[in-house]
Amino acid sequence: MTAPSLSLTWTDHVTGRQGHLVVDRLVRGVASGGLRMREGCSLAEVAGLARGMTMKEALHYNPDRPAGKYIPLGGAKGGIDCDPRDPDAYGVLVRYLRAMRPYVETVWTTGEDLGLTQDVVDRAAAEAGLVSTVQAVYRLLDDEGAARGRLAAAFAVEVDGIGLDELVGGCGVAESVLVALDRAGVRHEGTRVCVQGFGTMGGATARFLSRAGLLVVAVADVKGTVANPRGLDVEALLAARDAYGTVDRAALRPEDRELPGDAWLSTDAEVLVPAAVSYAIDAANQASISARWVVEAANMPVLPEAEELLARRGVTVLPDVVVNSGTNAWWWWTLFGDVDADAEAAFAHTRRSMRDLVGRMLARAEADGTTPRAAAHAIVDDRLPLITERFGWYG
């Protein structure tokens, strides 16, 4: 892959906090990728995430099939080095978006990511003078009004009290797990899962897997790990979490156990789902993992050296660029008109797309004798030249 098209660092004149924007690649003059906020967020981290977005967009474009209405974009990412709980965080976010306004208006479509919710991003964007965080893509739409109406309607849909936009990503992660189990001949019922992080992605993943018959035996948040070898009450935990994914321990049952924060790594489970911060699994702590699959719901949670060591031990890592790509794809399927503002239609489309993509990746890995991540990269390498040839960099 080539070097990023744009890489910049901004310094807030009020707090001295820094923010970053990396546009890894443009397709038709536009790039897609969320905005995260966390203490310690670096330019290198944002660059890696932007490269991942380029891959996600390419992976959801299948040139061998009749194209849907959505055509892929390039990849980008934004990041702010600030704890979202900091009293200054919202002001920093507004000023960052004001500074990035020329890019959001013309080339960068963005939305919620780690540490931020879409409603907060939208409110800050309005204060920063933006029409929308995805306005750069409007010029590519056949009917802007209808498209914006579909997306607004979709964001208003709730399922059991949780917004559709908060569920589709976890639906995609869960389907990735189910495909891996199916290919290995492992029954869904009773297969044990541990989820690290219980925010938007982790919570939705736990819900879909639990409803598919799997046992969620452990959940980790900033307070520690909650575990029950017979299965946690996922719905009760979802109802008891705050906006940051922290579970109120008063909702635990007598048989549920509270364990230290790092206990999630060594949980006795077949599937481990890191769904929180990047770089959570390193060369040292990977030795604690006994799961058969590590499924990356978070972005870049497994460091490369850890993944190599896990592979040597027979642990399969399903990579983030495939596993957690459902949220980004759903935005565009909805905006461009491939799905309507309907939960069941969105879930069905997500499941079909993820089942095809994960199956294709695992088949390629088996055929090439390599890892799922290497197989995903190989698929991207096949598709990017075709995307460039058919749609161009700058539109």
Rank of each mutant, 00 (worst) to 15 (best):
W10E: 09
V121S: 03
Q196M: 01
C41Y: 06
T334M: 03
S7I: 04
A250P: 11
G40A: 11
L6M: 07
G40F: 06
G78W: 04
G203C: 05
S176N: 01
A47F: 00
R360A: 06
G75N: 14
V226S: 11
H188Y: 06
V222R: 01
T225C: 12
E307T: 06
G185N: 11
A124G: 04
A306S: 06
W330F: 13
T191M: 11
L97I: 07
R352N: 10
D368G: 13
G231P: 00
V137T: 07
A306P: 07
P84S: 09
W393I: 01
L164M: 12
T370F: 01
P254M: 09
Q196S: 02
V121H: 07
R351T: 13
D248R: 04
P84I: 08
A263D: 06
H13V: 02
G145W: 01
Y244Q: 05
N324E: 01
R312L: 10
L386H: 08
T54V: 03
T15R: 12
C41D: 13
A284F: 13
L130N: 03
V339F: 12
N285F: 10
G224F: 15
A376E: 00
Y138C: 06
S278I: 04
L93N: 09
D256H: 00
D160I: 11
V179L: 11
V339W: 10
T246N: 01
K77S: 09
I71G: 07
T388F: 14
H188S: 14
Y138Q: 05
A263C: 01
A147M: 00
A297M: 11
A291Q: 14
P304T: 07
R390A: 09
E57I: 02
M361F: 13
D381K: 03
A47C: 04
E189Y: 08
G231S: 13
N299D: 05
T267K: 08
G129K: 01
V216C: 08
E255D: 11
T191C: 12
V177W: 02
M1R: 12
S7V: 05
D24C: 01
A204S: 13
A263P: 02
E255F: 00
N228P: 02
T133C: 10
D242L: 05
T191F: 08
A47E: 10
V193T: 09
A329F: 01
G19I: 01
G185D: 11
R383L: 07
A147H: 04
D221P: 04
G33A: 08
V23C: 10
K77R: 08
I379V: 07
W108E: 03
V323Q: 08
D142K: 13
A58I: 15
A180W: 03
A291L: 10
V23A: 13
T54F: 02
G91V: 15
L49R: 03
A287V: 09
A50P: 00
D64L: 15
R230G: 05
M354E: 05
